[in-house]
Design a protein around this nucleic acid. Structure first.
Lengths: 348, 348
DNA sequence: AACGGGTCTGACTACGCTGTCAGGCGCAAC
DNA sequence: GTTGCGCCTGACAGCGTAGTCAGACCCGTT
């Protein structure tokens, strides 16, 4: 700023970050050779390789992903559509997906669906496509993913059901959740309960529907008519509200998730009904707090890491140029964790 | 597949997505005009604009962000370094940051730090820089962010303390958490408790240190010597373990977070001590379950949305070409929510 | 009639990188 | 001595977009 006339003084000019050309000049090689070193291509002498690496380190060179993506047409990035929610389940799934993605050398971008908008999923997909992704995972547990335009141009897989997608784009086997729920309800029936009530998740979440379905299946398999389901909303508040509607003759309840069970437990406590003596409770998720509630909560433990890895591998298999991968090691498992919130019904 | 010899038949050839050139050809204009329309530049006649938009829609044109980033040098993307954790606090902050970022028209990329690695934060920052971001927010609540190389080339702001960063890169005022904690502890002292115990978070988290600091401050302000803090780890399990070490004379405990309080409550229950009659409990976070525990938990409610918006605006102000923004509307607030887990000590 | 300025449009170029291709070298096979 | 083939290197083109600049046109003013 000493000489107002000096054009673009070199001092504080916003200098662009170094490129391969700069590295090449410093190392005394061609730009293409730098490219080869950076990408670990064959046919570079050890001598030049080291010279290039030294020059790159000295300049603090970082390859420009935009330029690379422009020419290769690949972003090495996958997008995830998720409900914007800090609920334990969705949040854990996101963490697991991020871990799996990065382990695969890909980057990871989330788009949360604004709540309550009918076209929210399509909008998030568009957003991800606009940002540039090679594939999309719908972690969105609601139904809105059912109506996607088919012209995305990249593979899309769903963690659950999504009517519009071809069957091979559904990453996790349908009915898996239902089977776990069925097991949980059977545990209660085995204890001697005549029937098991259910505080359901919203039925426009497919995950919620599956949990209800498994609960109903367990009854029907034994020729029992399930009681009418109560309506929850995944939250403790919803569980509490539903709990106040629970009829006095109920002796066992299967909740759509642990948070619901917490709310229900509170409602029961206020009504003077003891858990598990008067009412047995089963949740779903095995949140960290579940083992430390009073009483500790019987629940179904999920395998988010396994699910995430499974879904990602499924997606990678659909990507162009996918190496033919061997069969997925093992389907993720869920298991019932029996704690003190379940007991046989009181014999009167 | 009918003719195995046909070289690259046009049918299923992976055709690249349409570009501005294709749109231009269809609309009968130059590529530059398409660029102008897409970017809402001035000096395009309404007639051409509509023709271009029609052509773009017909081809399903999506601007190529890689090419745009290549030429502008900006990615319109910010990165967030976070602990990979589904803990309520971190997860809520991520959701809030995503929302704020997208509202600002930017995209958003998370890098979770692998646990337990000393250089984890630097590594995540490098990862984000390699992906291409215009700025970075450290949501990482641990200390490892203190030793960042200064040559990032993009602005970095921290949600908390990070010794290496210039002061103006710390987005949230230091001591804010401490003040809230102090208020929580004062609530207990005001109820008549002689002293308040603390189950601390790990002290290599600055957030954990601040919570301990506020607790200690509340004592010292009244000339009381605080009891030695017990060591927790944010989890119910940690709270439970610490709770078993809580001396019998303790009548009030301030927990580093709600999960810790849940574990502590369990330990107290097993020891036959009632909450709040024998021991009062205060948590931190106001997780959704807090109001539905038995007893409902007194706790400090956070303002993740506010914090996220605040931090993002702080970052945007550091970006080159930042419009001079008016002062941030209002500092995010936290407030104490008093529920049934706190009461005066029993008068013996 | 000539001029100046605002409006509109397109040709050209550069961004940083990877793909393609050609060429030089050394070595073994004929 | 020639040929052929691996190994190594660099020149060149081009990915899809935005910046620059020149030019065409229209208008109102001198």
């Amino acid at each position: 700023m000493t000489s107002p006339i000096a054009p673009e003084s070199d001092g504080d000019a916003r200098r662009r970050p170094p490129g391969m050309t700069d590295v090449a000049r410093l190392a005394g090689v061609s730009q293409k050779t730098v490219s080869r070193v950076v990408n670990n291509e064959r046919y570079v002498s050890e001598e030049l390789r080291e010279k290039v690496l030294r020059a790159a380190a000295e300049l603090g060179f970082r390859p420009n992903t935009a330029a690379r993506a422009l020419i290769t047409g690949r972003f090495k990035r996958i997008g995830v559509v998720s409900l914007g929610s800090a609920l334990y389940g969705p949040a854990s799934m996101l963490v697991a997906l991020e871990r799996a993605t990065r382990a695969a050398g890909l980057s990871f971008m989330v788009a949360n669906t604004p709540e309550g908008q009918p076209e929210a999923v399509q909008e998030s997909v568009d957003w991800l496509l606009a940002q540039g992704v090679d594939g999309i995972i719908l972690s969105e547990p609601k139904d809105e993913g059912q109506h996607l335009r088919p012209d995305a141009g990249v593979p899309i897989v769903s963690l659950g059901q999504a009517a519009d997608l071809p069957a091979e784009h559904v990453a996790l086997a349908r009915g898996r959740t239902a089977a776990s729920c069925r097991e949980a309800v059977e545990h209660l029936l085995d204890l001697g309960h005549r029937q098991v009530w259910h505080i359901a998740a919203p039925q426009d979440w497919w995950e919620g529907r599956e949990r209800l379905e498994g609960w109903a299946q367990a009854h029907r398999a034994r020729g029992i008519e399930p009681p009418p389901p109560l309506q929850g909303d995944w939250t403790p508040a919803g569980g509490y509200a539903a709990g106040r509607l629970l009829p006095p003759e109920a002796t066992a309840v299967f909740c759509a998730n642990d948070d619901t069970a917490i709310g229900l437990a509170r409602a029961l406590h206020e009504a003077g009904r003891r858990v598990p003596a008067d009412v047995s409770l089963v949740g779903f998720d095995d949140i960290p707090a579940a083992a430390y509630l009073t009483p500790p909560l019987t629940t179904v433990q999920q395998d988010f890491e396994g699910d995430a890895t499974h879904a990602l591998e499924h997606l990678l298999r659909l990507l162009p140029g996918a190496a033919p991968r061997e069969a997925t090691p093992a389907a993720p498992r869920r298991r019932l964790v029996v704690r003190a919130s379940t007991a046989p019904p009181l014999t009167e």
